[in-house]
Design a protein around this nucleic acid. Structure first.
Length: 429
RNA sequence: GCCGGCGUAGCUUAGUCUGGUGGAGCACCCGGCUGUUAACCGGGCGGUCACCGGUUCAAAUCCGGUCGCCGGCGCCA
């Protein structure tokens, strides 16, 4: 008889045999009967070890095995109202593969302790469900790009291009030369559209910002796409289609995970194009009306973003930010004051999940803006070449995978959207 | 960088204001219990009170400093 997954055993009928393997999740003993809840990647089930129905040796093993011991169990399936989940296994064979020492994570835990023991805490049911959801989400995203004829590309994470704008980068010694961990693959994607036209990639991105908020990681998974012959409005359409597809698919395909995490699939089902578009200047007006002290040129903080999506059930776009507040490569609008960009804000105050723009084609304009930021123009020569040899209008966007997951999974903190979060004060374990 | 909070047993904590031999729950070990639901009952093991210095007859407690963590702000295409 082969080992079965717990989710399949749960579906079995009264009296059928079952053979499972996994880890001890909970254990309660009552003298001659031991209740052992077993966990595997698919779920949990209660097993009953009775002294009279099993060898002495096996019963002793069952008594001694502590939580998180790995075990192999055979028995028969029984329906019982008293069992969590309604079904349980009456054990006929009990084998311990690996006895666990005292498991450090018990009833009460602090955030700090759990982060110190992250390598063990990731076994928890919550993080397990989050990671399942993330895996499925990535599968869905890949499916969408496939179906929309985008090429997946693999740009480098090591770069000698210093950061654009005021963002901070992690630098390191690359055989005697200063190099950086990439903050974005965008410029490389732009180079690739001149042959492939539609490209996307998924890479880690790094930000050395000392941001201590529930929305920031120093290392995160960055989904980026770039398309030739695309303007800002078409770019937004692409984004709202992608996000809508992801929400619809997850609502359909991830019911169990969503239910466990407390996200109603209905919240995702209503996400479909078009998303509301609001210009930066109107957003400022709106915020002023809501009593915020904010003026043209100011960037939005978390409270502003929250106020802008108040009452919204779908994400919204905020477009046409002032030139000064955005990066050098964003195309300047005809008004000369704003750029052809769009930030997508998630509902419920989860904040920015996508930043995108049409790209500037005028080299002089880019140089002027780069100089204002104190950047070394020489580093960008290769990038300017892209404008020199058959430039075309093009646009693209970048999406923070963990931020998207944070919203969809209704998480309190972005650190739970990744198994080993890298935060300002933490890179262990 | 700034503001706030915290640091006592493996974990969660009481005790700190008002100085006088550090208590408890969980985990673990031993014993009891044949239907438990983060079982229960009895017993046991377990402490550099974050670290350094000071005040005092006496410091977990008061004072000064250091370190670590958490929450938030700022920063953040």
């Amino acid at each position: 008889m082969k080992f079965e997954k717990i989710k399949d055993v749960i579906k079995k009928e009264e009296g059928q045999k079952a053979k499972i393997r996994g880890w001890i999740y909970r254990k309660r003993s009552s003298g001659k009967i031991i209740f052992i809840v077993i966990r595997d990647s698919t779920g949990i089930i209660q097993t009953i070890v009775e002294k009279e129905k099993i060898s002495n040796e096996e019963f002793k093993k069952a008594e001694k095995a502590l939580i998180e011991s790995s075990v192999e169990i055979e028995g028969t399936v029984h329906e019982d109202k008293r069992a969590p989940g309604g079904k349980e296994i009456h054990v006929t064979k009990f084998n311990v593969v690996g006895f666990a020492q005292d498991f450090p994570i018990t009833e009460y835990q602090s955030v700090e302790f759990l982060l110190d023991n992250r390598h063990l805490w990731i076994r928890s049911r919550k993080l397990t469900e989050v990671m399942k959801l993330k895996a499925k989400m990535l599968r869905i995203i890949r499916r969408w790009f496939d179906e929309n004829d985008f090429y997946e590309v693999t740009p480098s994470v090591i770069t000698t291009n210093a950061a654009e704008g005021g963002a901070t980068v992690f630098s390191f010694d690359y055989f005697g030369q200063e190099a950086f961990l990439s903050q974005t693959a965008q410029m490389y994607l732009e180079a690739l559209i001149f042959s492939l036209e539609n490209v996307w990639c998924l890479t880690p991105s790094f930000r050395a910002e000392k941001s201590r908020t529930r929305r920031h990681l120093t290392e995160y998974w960055h989904l980026e796409a770039e398309e030739a012959w695309l303007n800002n409005e078409e770019n937004m359409k692409l984004q709202e289609e992608l996000i809508s597809y992801v929400c619809q698919s997850i609502a359909k395909e991830c019911k169990d995970e969503l239910e466990f995490l407390g996200r109603d699939p209905k919240d995702l089902k209503i996400v479909e194009p078009p998303f509301k578009r609001i210009k930066y200047k109107d957003a400022i007006k709106m915020l002023n009306e809501k009593g915020f002290d904010i003026k043209w040129g100011d960037d939005f903080g978390a409270p502003h973003e929250k106020a802008l999506v108040e009452g919204e059930e779908k994400p919204i776009f905020v477009t046409h930010f002032p030139v000064e507040s955005k990066a050098f490569y964003m195309k300047i609008s005809p008004d000369g004051k704003t750029v052809e960009c769009a930030d997508m804000l998630a509902p419920e105050g989860y904040g920015e999940i996508i930043g995108g723009s049409e790209r500037e084609e005028n080299i002089d304009s880019m140089i002027e803006r780069l100089k204002k930021d104190g950047a070394n123009i020489k580093n960008y020569e290769w990038y300017f070449d892209l404008r020199r040899y058959g430039s075309v209008p093009h646009s693209g966007f970048g999406l923070g995978i963990e931020r998207l997951l944070c919203w969809i999974a209704k998480l309190e903190h972005i650190r739970d959207a990744t198994p080993f979060p890298r935060l300002v004060r933490r890179a262990y374990p």
